[in-house]
Design a protein around this nucleic acid. Structure first.
Lengths: 157, 157
DNA sequence: GTGTTCAGATTGATGTATCAACCCGGCCAC
DNA sequence: GTGGCCGGGTTGATACATCAATCTGAACAC
């Protein structure tokens, strides 16, 4: 084989990051699932809906906010509607229906968010402290920028 | 609503991290899928198998290395076997079968790994530079440790 | 040997993610 | 109006993740 023996310092640090991301993500996800009976996907959609005053917005707006594919969102909304977390509402232009947060969905997200934030602080924010957190976030922002540039290059081929 | 307006500095930094993790992960995943026709799960299993001299190891060993549930691994191996990437082999103790990398799987992973590493360097390692990378990795390690401690506390209830 | 037990492996059911194909209502040309 | 276009939305098929239930064969007691 060969190559896997030649992992340098940098590659081991990459693996540390991957490990951290995997564990942190699954921990938060499991907490949401067990305590609030919400998947990460449910949580994301519900959070976006609370960002509207009327607990209701066009499907396209949710899609833009979450950056999900339209089909993924459609399937997700179907399942969430079946569980009574949201409901589909016809708007003026019947091509572009709205989604509304039900009372049940509202209750669920209002229970979930504070717990989630608390856990994020305990496991991430407070662990790093303000200074290292800022450095960490800056690093993330830089990687994001590099990603955007890379994508631009790919599209302009 | 209320709470979502009160997002502090720290929470916005957390969101930056989430965004970065999401985009970086899906970018790497899509590259693997498009260029090598491998899912992230395929990639992980294949990498573990190359870590054995004989391209073959007990299922349980793969499970330990990936930290996957046995059932997830079993399903994954079934699908990979159907595509000819691996094959199941009976070992001495027929309770604990082995998995072997086929030639096709070997070819696939040997194409994928260098491309993957190159992309990780371009999008992550080189973007941060050695110094910030080290700090970043240290931060990840600290978060991992906090996670472990947290889990310990949960189990000892 | 026969029966019990046990750990690891498999299977089935359900929820989720992604791609391709299709639907459908407003829009424009004519 | 009638017909074709267009873009967002939905649906279907397949792959993946997770949980619960089941299977399997070695090991141990007797």
């Amino acid at each position: 084989m060969g190559w896997e023996q030649e992992l340098g310092e940098a590659d081991r640090m990459w693996r540390t990051y991957i490990e951290m991301a995997k564990h942190l993500g699954s921990h938060l996800q499991q907490h949401l699932q067990r305590e609030c009976n919400l998947s990460a996907a449910d949580f994301e959609v519900l959070v976006r809906l609370t960002e509207s005053e009327r607990r209701e917005m066009p499907v396209a707006e949710v899609a833009a906010a979450t950056q999900w594919e339209k089909s993924r969102l459609s399937h997700q909304l179907t399942r969430m509607a079946q569980r009574g977390l949201v409901e589909r509402v016809d708007s003026n232009d019947r091509r572009y229906p709205d989604v509304r947060l039900t009372d049940k969905g509202y209750a669920a997200i209002n229970k979930a968010v504070p717990e989630h934030i608390e856990m994020v602080h305990a496991l991430f924010v407070d662990v790093l402290g303000p200074e290292r957190l800022a450095g960490f976030a800056q690093a993330c922002a830089d990687v994001l920028r590099a990603l955007d540039e890379h994508r631009e290059r790919d599209c302009s081929l």
